[in-house]
Amino acid sequence: MINLVYNEMLKIVRKKRLFIIAAIVAVLVSLFTYAQFKQIETIRERIGTTDWRTQLQQQIIDTQNRLNSTGISEEWKKFLKIRLQQQQYYLDNDINPMAPGAPTFMRMFIENSIELFLPLLVMVIAADLVSSEASGGTIKLLLTRPVKRWKVLMSKYIAMILSTSFIVFSVALLSYAISGIVFGYGGWNLPLLTGFSVQGEELNTTAVHLIPQWKYLLIEFGLAFFVSLVVGTLTFMLSVLIRSTAAVMGIMLAALISGAILSSMVSSWESAKYLFMVNLRLTSYISGTAPPIDGMTLSFSMTVLAVWALGALIVSFYVFTKRDVY
C-alpha cells in the first residue's frame, strides 16, 4: 500500500503541479502584501496616527454612521452591527486584532482564501487524478496489476490528501515568509478573541475567550485543511465519474463560484444551508462574523461538509470498483 501511495505521489510531483501552485501562491501573496501595506499607509495618512485605538475607534464611528444612513440593506446592516459590537469588544478589552506582523497577515490571507482560492488550488490537483488515467488509457495498465481495485483508488485518495496538506502548508509558509519582509516576523503570541456566537442581530460573548495567535492560526489552518479535503474529495468523485479532466474542473469551478455568490444572497432561502458551497467559510465562525444564513454554526457546517465528503467517497469507491474499463 505504501508503495502504491508513493507511486501516486511520484506521478503528482512529476507533473510539477505542486510547484506551479506554490508559484501562484507566492505571486498572490506578494500582491496582497503590497495591497495591505498600501492600505495601512493610507489609513495612517487619513487619520494621522498609527495608534490602533484611534484607528479602531474611527472605524467604529464610520460604521455607526453607515448604519444611520438610509438605503442600506437589512443583511448588510446586520453584518455591520455584529462587526461593530465585536470591534467595541476588542476596544474595551484593549486588544488590537490587527497588530501588524506576518502571523496577522497569514490569518487574514487564510480567512479570505478558504472559500475560493484554496479550493481552486486543491481542485487543480484532484481533478485529474483518475480522469487523466481514464482519458490517457493508462488506467488499464494500472488495473491489470495484481492489486485490488479499491486499493488503487485508496492510494490515489491518500495521495490527494497528502498533496492537499502540501498546498495548505505552502500557503502558510509563503504567506508567512513573504509578508514578513514587510510587516516583520513577530506576533505569534498576540492575544485574540474567539468564541463569539451570533444570535439574530446580537453578538453573544458568553463563550468568548482569549487564545494566542499561533493557536488561532493552527485552528484556522486546520479548518482550511478540512475544507480543502472536502472540496478535494468532491473533485475526486467527479474525477472518477467523468473521463474528461476539463469537465471535472468546469463543474467544480461552477459549484465553487456559485457558492461564493450564493452566500451573499441566500439569507432568505433557508434550505440552501445544506449545500456544501455555502458552508465553506468555516473561519468566520472562529472570528465571529455573521453566517450567511441564520442558525448556521461551526458544528453544523462541519457536519454538512463531512456528510457531503462521505457521500462522495462512497460513490467514488462504488463506481470505481464496479465499473467496466475498456
Binding site: 496538506s165 489552518f221 486546520g222 485543511f225 461551526l298
Partner: peptide
C-alpha cells in the same frame, strides 16, 4: 499538523 489543528479546533470551540 493540520489534523492537530482540527483537534484543537474541536477542543477549543466546542
Amino acid at each position: 499538523l493540520w489534523a492537530i489543528g482540527l483537534i484543537v479546533t474541536i477542543q477549543d470551540q466546542f
